[in-house]
């Protein structure tokens, strides 16, 4: 099939960008979206033009590197699917496809479709960790985890940090990402020692990075390739609220007046 692409081209963060039209010829329905872009890029290289820059790595939907806005929805039309796992059979001959980078103040465009997602890394650094005892590996059942908690924690842990939630949110909010990370550790016994610090630290960092706030639109969860639920956001809201009133300042000991 043949497609018309309108792709955002931008040389670097400082340069102005624009949508450029490309014709994609003889696209096989079995190609992934990224393979289609590879073929377009080969044509561009042959003509001596700069190929379209886009992020990708595993191409099997688990690393979170890929992700572009495809016709106005993050990762394109298929639910629960990252851009690398989206196949061209989701489109039909003659389609016009607009391809844009994630757009958020916190995610400046580095080049073409690649944005800087390091704010998400800094949110993780602000609390996305647990303390563990070093030494011999403990027995598997030393710490008992209720089955349902393990399941819910795993659901949240599926977040691959692609940033589609930010891209899809009309407010460019990173609530779903942050909430997935807060939930995934906060649901497990191993995550309890840092639970208050985690919610406070990650939410504070999220705000510092310049993301928008949550208005409960639900666009994030619909765009999420891992279908992280809005329940995680509620859990983070609760953890943050409770932690605000429960957490003691680092210096104050128990019982200080």
């Amino acid at each position: 099939m043949n497609l018309t692409l309108h792709v955002w081209r931008q040389v670097d963060a400082g340069a102005p960008g624009r949508l450029v039209r490309y014709e994609a010829r003889d696209v096989s329905p079995d190609m992934s979206f990224l393979e289609m872009l590879d073929v377009v890029n080969e044509g561009l290289i042959e003509k001596g033009e700069d190929p379209i820059a886009f992020d990708h790595d595993c191409r099997e939907g688990i690393c979170g590197s890929c992700g572009v806005m495809i016709n106005g929805s993050a990762h394109g039309p298929m639910a629960g699917t990252a851009t690398c796992q989206l196949h061209m059979r989701s489109f039909k001959d003659g389609d016009k496809i607009v391809i844009e980078p994630w757009r958020a103040r916190a995610f400046p465009v580095l080049r073409d479709l690649i944005v800087d997602r390091s704010p998400l890394d800094r949110i993780i650094q602000a609390g996305g960790f647990v303390s563990i005892a070093t030494g011999n590996a403990p027995d598997a059942h030393t710490i008992l985890v209720p089955k349902q908690d393990a399941e819910s924690a795993m659901d949240a842990a599926q977040c691959i940090g692609c940033g589609a939630c930010v891209a899809a949110c009309p407010n460019a909010s990173a609530m779903l990402f942050t909430a997935a990370k807060v939930s995934h550790l906060g649901l497990l016994p191993q995550g309890q020692p840092e639970r208050d610090r985690r919610a406070l630290g990650m939410v504070t960092q999220m705000d510092l990075e310049g993301f928008g706030g949550c208005t409960n639109y639900g666009e994030c969860t619909t765009a999420c390739p891992k279908e992280i639920s809005l329940e995680t956001i509620a859990r983070m809201n609760r953890d943050f609220r409770v932690a605000t009133f429960r957490a003691r300042p680092e210096s104050a000991g128990a019982g200080s007046s």
């Binding site: 929805s73 844009e100 757009r103 103040r105 765009a223």
Partner: peptide
């Protein structure tokens, strides 16, 4: 805050869920 959080608008943005 929400208004300044996306300084460059999408050429095409289709709300899916709201």
């Amino acid at each position: 805050l929400n208004q300044v959080s996306r300084p460059v608008a999408y050429a095409k943005h289709v709300p899916q869920a709201s």
